[in-house]
């Protein structure tokens, strides 16, 4: 049962150029009567290696951008876009009481997620179905990590996993709406890329 699942995962992870070898491993798995789990685990390891080789950089970028790139983006945004235009008396806080700050935060935040998803979708359109849930999980992890870090290190409060109210929506709906934002952006990126590829092929 578990072995079968591992073999299915192996098959799903196998890049096209290694399909022959994946079939070869599957043929032996079907013929194997003892130690099927060990055989399947080994096959999964091999397929994971192929996948990492094929998409390792893509995966690394997907993980790295939210944790490193977003800070740079936010800093740039506040310094170059928001601070020059907000009224001089207004405090440059991230989530301020005034509408300008709140809107600016909301806009820069949404824009960075959209640009990130758009770029990822453009880069590897064929991996869209993997990219969207992966980006959602990573971005949510980054947001919760940032909040926990802020509470613990800066405020000195214990880390609690208090639900974050995305756009004041109820639990799960907020996360789903966030995933939809990423899905639409990544889908847009994939469409642009495919259209560009078609144009180039003509």
């Amino acid at each position: 049962m578990i072995a079968d699942l591992l073999m299915k995962l192996t098959y799903a992870l196998t890049p096209k150029d290694q399909a022959l070898w994946s079939e070869a491993m599957r043929g032996e798995y079907a013929a194997e009567s003892r130690g099927r789990l060990g055989w399947a685990a080994g096959c999964l390891m091999v397929a994971s290696g192929w996948r990492l080789k094929a998409d390792g950089l893509w995966l690394a970028i997907i993980f790295a951008v939210p944790f490193f790139g977003f800070d740079i983006w936010s800093h740039w945004w506040w310094q170059n876009v928001i601070l020059p235009v907000i009224p001089s008396g207004s405090k440059p806080v991230i989530i301020g009481p005034d509408d300008i700050n709140r809107m600016a935060f909301f806009f820069q935040s949404g824009l960075k997620y959209m640009l990130y998803a758009l770029a990822i979708g453009m880069w590897r359109p064929r991996l869209l179905r993997v990219a969207v849930p992966l980006m959602t999980m990573i971005c949510l992890a980054q947001v919760y990590w940032a909040l926990a870090h802020y509470n613990w290190v800066i405020e000195g409060q214990p880390v609690t996993f208090v639900y974050l109210h995305w756009m004041n929506l109820p639990p799960v709906i907020g996360e789903l709406a966030f995933m939809m934002l990423l899905a639409v952006s990544a889908g847009g990126g994939a469409l642009i890329r495919r259209a560009a590829d078609r144009k180039q092929a003509k």
Binding site: Q18, W21, A24, M25, G27, E28, A31, E32, G38, W39, A40, A41, G42, C43, M45, V46, G49
Partner: peptide, 22 residues
């Protein structure tokens, strides 16, 4: 020789055998 026969002869599991065969 099949992969399983090679595995039995060498003691290598699929995770090591196939990268070598490739």
């Amino acid at each position: 020789l099949y992969g399983l026969e090679l595995s039995a002869a060498t003691g290598l599991k699929s995770g090591s055998l196939y990268p070598i065969l490739i």
